[in-house]
Nucleic acid binder design. Structure first.
Lengths: 130, 130
DNA sequence: CGGGATCCAAGCAGATACTG
DNA sequence: CAGTATCTGCTTGGATCCCG
């Protein structure tokens, strides 16, 4: 235990593997988290509805990711003990604050899609005999 | 080819798998990209130096990720044909703009580490008999 | 020194079947 | 409907060897 504290992985010093920030990046880094947060953007959504929205996700990954988000306190889970069970998921306060940096990232992505595509294109074209 | 254009994966509509934004998220999502961008934060850095900074990364992953970033036009590669070959990596203009949203994300991570840890802790403690 | 190629292990993720 | 459990395939990534 080195009790490493919230250091910057980017700013210039410790890119250490044990930096706690890494864990967060790992989470949002997985294939589905961001999409699920997106699906919960506008309020309370049922399990099957999330599944429909994220489209392509398996039931296993959906459950797994949702539980991870719940564990991290980013998503709240509500079970309605009705005849056919109904479960609703909602972003918690913390989860909602995550939307901002995520949106920033998405804005960057949208703004740079052209650049990136063009660059890839040129790169793949080979040693561009200038 | 559906020529899907820069749609929002978050804002409320298409969480489609073919959304080009996904590709960007996939890239920054991998375990090393963010760390490498961090390592290149302050200018031109040699291969071995990057490797030392990112610490824990294998030579394979480093090369692979760097090439990916180069292909995306986020990192520039310069080869100095000296006796022992010397290669330097630098963030391109596009690469530098990526630092902002990344920093925002990191800020969020740092700000929420406490929340998240506490939540995980509570979650793991079991069905909290309130 | 930088990095390509290969081999192999571990983890991630999908399909399926079964429960409350 | 909303999950859990299992089995399996595929991808990811590390270790190693070799080349410029």
């Amino acid at each position: 235990m080195v009790t490493t504290q919230a250091e910057s992985v980017l700013g210039g010093s410790p890119y250490r593997a044990d930096c706690p920030t890494r864990h967060i990046l790992d989470r949002i880094g997985d294939r589905w988290t961001v999409l699920i947060v997106g699906a919960l953007w506008d309020g309370s959504v049922r399990f099957s509805e999330v599944r429909r929205r994220v489209e392509g996700i398996s039931q296993k990954m959906l459950t797994q990711t949702l539980r991870g988000l719940e564990r991290d306190g980013l998503v709240h889970r509500t079970v309605h003990p009705e005849v056919p069970v109904r479960v609703e998921y909602t972003l918690t306060e913390a989860g909602r604050t995550l939307r901002e940096p995520l949106r920033a990232l998405e804005q960057w992505a949208i703004a740079n899609l052209g650049n990136v595509s063009a660059s890839q294109d040129a790169y793949d074209r080979g040693p561009t005999s200038s």
